[in-house]
């Protein structure tokens, strides 16, 4: 084969692959079309822009933490009047919330109607009593992972410290025994293997936020990258 013929063949092959990949990516199922057309109570479409649907959440990796409920401790501290630490049994004794919500990953998948059980971050905050100076919440997790969320959004009623997914205790890959759940922001904010909730006066970009991802992460504004 001559060099010219080789280059032509390579270019043709690349074009076909690119077109095939694009058509695969752009293909939309009826379910996705319906989710795009359906509105949430706040008027936004159920499926944020450029997202596709999955049936179950994906683990997405991360440095695996200790799945032991016996070793679990959650520290609530920072700009609060009453910092405290609770264990797994005490977390289960707090008012439990069962919630069905949609979650959206920055890698473009969305799961509709995922079922979670846990404790509202707002209830934990009510016990810790944040000071007026507290403006942001930092979710702290295993191996130094952090995710920052504005306090108003962290205390929304659908933000949980979750220990069950789809009716079963949280799987190891999903951050057992406890993870954060912030459904209205990209899912990297929902820190797995949660160890702490820290209230701060000044925002502190977290693990992914300092690695080029958006500081806020609103799926409907496509705040993927900073």
């Amino acid at each position: 084969m001559s060099r010219r013929a080789f280059v032509r063949s390579a270019m043709a092959g690349t074009t076909i692959l690119a077109l095939g990949g694009a058509s695969y990516v752009l293909a939309s199922t009826d379910e996705e079309k319906k989710a795009r057309a359906t509105k949430r109570p706040d008027g936004r479409p159920r499926l944020p822009p450029d997202q596709y649907l999955l049936k179950r959440i994906r683990p997405m990796g991360g440095t695996v933490g200790d799945p032991s409920p016996g070793n679990f401790r959650l520290k609530v501290y920072g700009e609060v009047e009453q910092p405290f630490t609770i264990d797994f049994a005490e977390l289960l004794r707090m008012p439990q919330v069962e919630q069905t919500c949609d979650v959206h990953c920055v890698t473009k998948w969305t799961v509709l109607d995922s079922r979670w059980t846990g404790v509202r971050v707002a209830d934990l905050a009510a016990r810790a009593r944040p000071k007026r100076s507290a403006r942001h919440v930092i979710f702290e997790a295993h191996a130094g992972y952090t995710a920052n969320v504005p306090i108003a959004e962290a205390l929304a009623p659908n933000v949980l410290v979750a220990h069950k997914y789809e009716g079963a205790p949280l799987a190891r890959a999903h951050g057992a025994p406890v993870r954060a759940l912030v459904p209205d922001l990209y899912f990297w904010k929902s820190a797995k293997w949660l160890t702490g909730i820290r209230f701060v006066a000044v925002d502190q970009p977290g693990y992914w936020e300092v690695r080029g991802y958006h500081n806020h992460g609103d799926p409907w504004k496509e705040e993927r990258y900073g």
């Binding site: 994906r58 683990p59 997405m60 990796g61 695996v64 890698t107 998948w109 079963a168 799987a171 190891r172 890959a173």
Partner: peptide, 17 residues
């Protein structure tokens, strides 16, 4: 990896009831 498996490049996860 999310196209090929369950999205975790480092571990294979399994679950059965």
């Amino acid at each position: 990896i999310t196209d090929w498996t369950d999205g975790d490049p480092s571990f294979k996860s399994y679950s059965r009831t």
